[in-house]
Design a protein around this nucleic acid. Structure first.
Lengths: 253, 253
DNA sequence: TAGTGGTCTAGACCACTCG
DNA sequence: GAGTGGTCTAGACCACTAA
């Protein structure tokens, strides 16, 4: 398959006044990714080799690579190489369903990174109506699909509402069960706020995307049936790998 | 104020093993933008001058500039210069309110770019449950806030539901009035889908952002009180200039 | 015509990773 | 130590815009 990449690289360029060379290289690499010529997880040839193959300088080649990195299709690891990141499909995340981690037809695993008790963040305190300095149980999650990380979340649960959350969650591994153990059998996603941003260094490392890659962020509030705030959630996806779906089933206005 | 920019540029750089020079230049330019040293709409010195001021090559300087351009804080116009784009605040767009153009405390103007009758797009046909080839009235909008464009929209209204839309809208300039003229006095935002993407060339020109700048996209469906699809809307914001807010007022689950 | 941003080259040195 | 990606330089030519 190195040979096929060579033949892709050796084609003559179109008039560069119409489309810059770096953009043409980008197109060719993208087609190589789409066609499976460069399969997910595989390593690209070194930048020196690639630049030579495409008949350009490393600077020009890197311009094409960096665009693919920002899109989340490639990831570079310093001193190691450039790798194809699996992006496959855009996941549909239904914000209005019973649980916000619902995924459309893709097996996914949610893994807790940390679980600590601490004072509520400013955002959580305001959203949940907590006193200053009031404590929450903070859990950090990362979600994988086919071993590719694609979602980060920080959830805060007020200790005053769910004093046993840490134990309940560690025992069952389920947030819904921890809700139930605190006597909460129904809740509603009261508000969701969506913004775009660029990944922080930590987020980029965890999601295995390049720094400065754009991400979608959500901040949401869960309330129990009495309107009491029970969860504040901050989430983050690589921009191109998710589609958020909001439904209103109510009729009339 | 050129003098203040000079003094900002002439400060010595920190250890470049800790933070690359282009990143340090980025930080200084950003602080110049935040502090108002480079006011909105103003033109930056030429790249040759800036590079000389910061003691680096144009290539290095441009790396800092391009990041600010992708963020939508700067816009370059070939043969003219680099300008400060007003970004000011993040607009809150409440998707669940009566009308999706509701803005939080900012005077804004919506301007129709075009109004044509044509076969429904694939997305509209599927979303609104139209026959193949069924006609819609398509209206393209651009929304400004303080003369800065920040929202593009393409709306499709089925001719079968609102045969007089074009005339009604042109007469009143109001979508709600055109709804009413067709006998629709209440409707609901049935579904909204949010994705991230990069601006197309046309979008970048209209929104006055740089090419390859990330954008937030929405695709939404309006239904009348009988559940009939009456509008399909595709919208697009510069990624960093909007916050989308979704509320669920229903209690219980 | 003069000045601007957009592109590209041919080098160079560095920090990092891994065998 | 060898190979990798990350950064930076000092030039150059081009297309575009406006006076």
């Amino acid at each position: 398959m190195d040979e096929r990449l060579h033949s892709l690289a050796k084609q003559p360029y179109a008039d560069k006044r119409k489309q810059p060379i770096w953009s043409q290289i980008y197109d060719r690499l993208r087609s190589a990714l789409d066609s499976g010529l460069l399969p997910e997880g595989s390593r690209l040839p070194g930048e020196d080799d690639l630049a030579h193959m495409f008949g350009v300088t490393r600077v020009t080649l890197r311009r094409a690579l960096s665009l693919l990195q920002r899109e989340g299709r490639l990831v570079s690891r310093k001193g190691v190489g450039v790798f194809v990141r699996s992006i496959s499909v855009r996941y549909e995340v239904r914000e209005t369903e019973a649980f916000n981690t619902a995924l459309s037809g893709a097996e996914s695993t949610m893994e807790a990174l940390s679980l600590v008790r601490k004072p509520a963040s400013d955002g959580a305190a305001e959203a949940l109506g907590l006193e200053i300095g009031e404590e929450v149980t903070e859990v950090r999650f990362i979600q994988y699909s086919q071993s590719t990380p694609y979602y980060l979340a920080i959830k805060e649960f007020p200790v005053s509402v769910m004093p046993g959350f840490a134990l309940d969650y560690e025992k069952t591994g389920s947030i819904l069960d921890a809700y139930a153990a605190a006597g909460i059998h129904s809740y509603v996603r009261a508000e969701t706020r969506i913004t775009g941003d660029f990944a922080t260094e930590e987020e980029a490392d965890l999601l295995r995307i390049s720094r400065q890659a754009p991400v979608l962020r959500s901040r949401s509030i869960n309330q129990d049936s009495n309107g009491r705030g029970i969860e504040y959630n901050r989430g983050c996806w690589p921009m191109l790998s998710v589609e958020l779906v909001f439904n209103n089933k109510t009729s009339g206005v």
